[in-house]
Amino acid sequence: MQAVATTQPPSTGRRRALRAFLANPAGVLAVLFLLFVAVLSLAAPLIYPEDPLSMVARPLLWPGQNAAYPLGTDSLGRDVAAGIVWGGRVSLLVGIVAMLLGVAIGLAIGATAGYFGGRVDQVLVKIVEIFQTPPSFVLLVVLVAVAQPSLTTVVLAIGGVTWPSTARLVRAEFRSLRSKDFVMAARSLGYGHARIILREILPNALPPLIVSSSVMVATAILMESALSFLGLSDPNVVSWGSMIGAGREMLRTAWYLSAVPGLAIVATVLALNALGDALNDALNPRLSGPR
């Protein structure tokens, strides 16, 4: 932020954004809920030390039927609540790591294309276009099928299909920022490209990137759940999507087996999207419409 210091001390900008964010009840609620899910996920081995795939009670207990199993049990007598908590670990982990991977690739390609422009830009834009043309979920299915399904390949594949949108965003930001006065100043001081990209332009391009990362975690969680619902993810790991897929067999009689993990996905993804909206309003005050 040192570059904008001439017009606006960085702390005021950041403090203003924080104040705007805290004034938005939806954003605060979303953060609190996500913290709750994160704590639950981290504490999973303490709350449910047993393997969530182990059979613990009478099968097909409905939620509320037995106080010891508040969310019921499935057809094999596995505790649904334990599955939700352990599945949340997988969903969050996949969502966050895949987002980081997608952002890293997108940032590297987008920054290079936007900063250098010219021939480099043309080639990179073409590559982005090629990766954006096939439907991303179909490409994702192909990638996971080619590599053997495991959590690692699922994360790599999701990162591999989501980076182009970040690359486009970063490229647009870098293109508009590279001719600004503070970049000229940095150049005239003899700073190298790497330093200008990372220390001068990147901090100014961060706000839209932060907003999109929050939405990307949501997208990654939805993609992982769809993959594991189809049975194309790691078969040895419980995740919300695989629970829905397993519950689908008993949809007519025990629909809660599909409903409960789905609600967990909806709540988490909704919180991430609401967080994205709130961040957008706080970080780009001029762009947000009347509220």
Binding site: A218, L222, S225, A226, F229, L230, G241, I244, R248, L251, W255, S258, A259, G262, I265, V266, V269, L270, L272, N273, A274, D277
Partner: peptide, 14 residues
């Protein structure tokens, strides 16, 4: 925002 957050396969099952 809610519709935007629904997994397609899940709402289909519901």
């Amino acid at each position: 925002l809610l519709l935007y957050s629904l997994p397609g396969f899940w709402i289909g099952l519901m």
